[in-house]
């Protein structure tokens, strides 16, 4: 009975971990939109939320790691599960760093580029959402993991296109007058696109784990 109780606890902790990741993506989108729309107070609150989510996710990962090893659970897959959780941690980390950097540098985004910035953020959020679905499926329904991974690849590719377009505009538009501004904009475009890159990296690992676990 103790064995079954331990499993129940761990399953719920893993579910909470994925809930945190989903919420981080939502906060990321809200935070960026609020910044671009000049709602700085709400942006500050989003930043506070993401800091908390990042630290919660980190401690949740440690708890799961401890329980997996101390209770000797899923001995043949626990390395893979920990690898998955650790790489996923990078996604939340990149979200926090992006919002934090906006707060520190307070870059001026020209109105002409705001919609594309929002589009890039949305595509990154889509990759994270699909990544979470793929990861949840890895635990419960392995046959559908690849469907979600394919969507991650698609959204990441779309994000790459928007990233390139934004960079070109940053360096070609005459309204962006100084080189330092251009370089700064390029840096922020890359920061936003990194979220989707990290989500794709998680899925690359996941696809290997799926092959290993296919019965």
């Amino acid at each position: 009975m103790k064995l079954l109780g331990q499993a129940k606890d761990l399953i719920s902790e893993i579910d909470i971990f994925w809930d945190n990741i989903s919420r981080s993506a939502l906060v990321f989108r809200a935070g960026l939109n609020n910044y671009l729309d000049g709602k700085i107070e709400r942006f500050q609150s989003d930043l506070k939320d993401i800091r908390k989510l990042e630290s919660d996710t980190d401690s949740k990962r440690r708890e799961i790691k401890y329980k997996l090893y101390s209770h000797m659970l899923i001995p043949e897959s626990r390395g893979d599960v920990l690898g998955l959780l650790e790489t996923t941690d990078n996604v939340v980390d990149s979200i926090k760093k992006a919002l934090l950097q906006f707060d520190i540098e307070k870059p001026e985004i020209p109105d002409l580029l705001k919609e594309e910035f929002k589009e890039l953020a949305q595509l990154s959020v889509n990759t994270v959402d699909e990544m979470v679905l793929a990861s949840r499926a890895f635990f419960r329904e392995i046959s559908i993991v690849n469907d979600h991974i394919n969507k991650v690849h698609y959204y990441e590719h779309e994000a790459d296109k928007v990233e390139e377009e934004l960079k070109r505009k940053a360096f070609n538009l005459e309204i962006i007058t100084t080189l330092s501004w251009k370089v700064q904009l390029r840096y922020f475009v890359e920061r936003l696109a990194r979220v989707s890159d990290e989500a794709e990296a998680v899925c690359d690992r996941l696809s290997v784990y799926v092959i290993k676990r296919s019965f």
């Binding site: 499993a7 761990l10 399953i11 899923i74 897959s77 599960v81 635990f139 419960r140």
Partner: peptide, 10 residues
């Protein structure tokens, strides 16, 4: 049955 990986392990 879509049982969780940890449950299958148990």
């Amino acid at each position: 049955s879509k049982i969780h990986m940890i449950r299958i392990d148990q």
